[in-house]
Amino acid sequence: MALSRRTYLTVVGSTAVIAGCSTGSADVPSYDVPTVTSPETVSSYLSDTSNFDGSMLDLTGRDEVEVAVGTEGNNGNNAYSPVAIQVETGTTVVWEWIRGSHNVVDTDDTFRSDIGTGLTFEHTFQETGTYTYYCSPHERYGMKGAVVVE
Results as ranks from 00 to 15, higher is better:
Leu3Lys: 10
Ser4Pro: 11
Ser4Phe: 06
Ser4Cys: 08
Ser4Gly: 13
Arg6Gly: 03
Thr7Leu: 15
Tyr8His: 11
Leu9Tyr: 10
Leu9Asn: 06
Leu9Thr: 03
Thr10Phe: 09
Val12Phe: 05
Gly13Ile: 01
Gly13Gln: 10
Ala16Asn: 11
Val17Ala: 15
Ala19His: 14
Gly20Gln: 03
Cys21Pro: 00
Ser22Ala: 02
Gly24Ser: 05
Ser25Lys: 00
Val28Asn: 15
Val28Thr: 15
Pro29Ser: 02
Tyr31Ala: 04
Tyr31Met: 06
Tyr31Phe: 06
Val33Pro: 12
Pro34Thr: 05
Val36Leu: 15
Val36Gly: 04
Thr37Lys: 12
Thr41Gln: 13
Thr41Gly: 04
Val42Tyr: 11
Ser43Tyr: 00
Ser44Asp: 05
Leu46Cys: 11
Ser47Val: 04
Thr49Phe: 08
Asn51Tyr: 08
Asp53Pro: 08
Leu57Asp: 10
Thr60Gly: 15
Arg62Phe: 07
Asp63Phe: 02
Asp63Ser: 09
Glu64His: 04
Glu66Ala: 09
Val69Lys: 13
Val69Arg: 13
Gly70Lys: 02
Glu72Gln: 07
Ala79Ile: 00
Ala79Tyr: 02
Ala79His: 05
Ser81Met: 13
Pro82Phe: 05
Ile85Gly: 01
Gln86Tyr: 11
Val87Met: 12
Glu88Asp: 15
Thr91Glu: 07
Thr92His: 11
Val93Trp: 11
Val93Thr: 10
Trp97Glu: 02
Trp97Pro: 01
Ile98Cys: 03
Gly100Asn: 08
Ser101Tyr: 15
Ser101Met: 10
Val105His: 13
Asp106Trp: 03
Asp108Gln: 14
Phe111Glu: 04
Phe111Arg: 10
Arg112Asn: 09
Asp114Asn: 14
Gly116Ser: 06
Gly118Tyr: 08
Gly118Pro: 07
Leu119Asp: 06
Phe121Pro: 09
Thr124Ile: 06
Gln126Arg: 13
Gly129Trp: 15
Tyr131Ala: 10
Tyr133Trp: 13
Tyr134Trp: 10
Tyr134Lys: 13
Pro137Val: 01
Pro137Tyr: 15
Pro137Gly: 05
Pro137Phe: 14
Pro137Ala: 09
His138Arg: 07
Glu139Lys: 15
Glu139Ala: 13
Arg140Gly: 10
Arg140Lys: 14
Arg140Asn: 11
Gly142His: 14
Ala146Ser: 10
Ala146Pro: 04
Val149Thr: 09
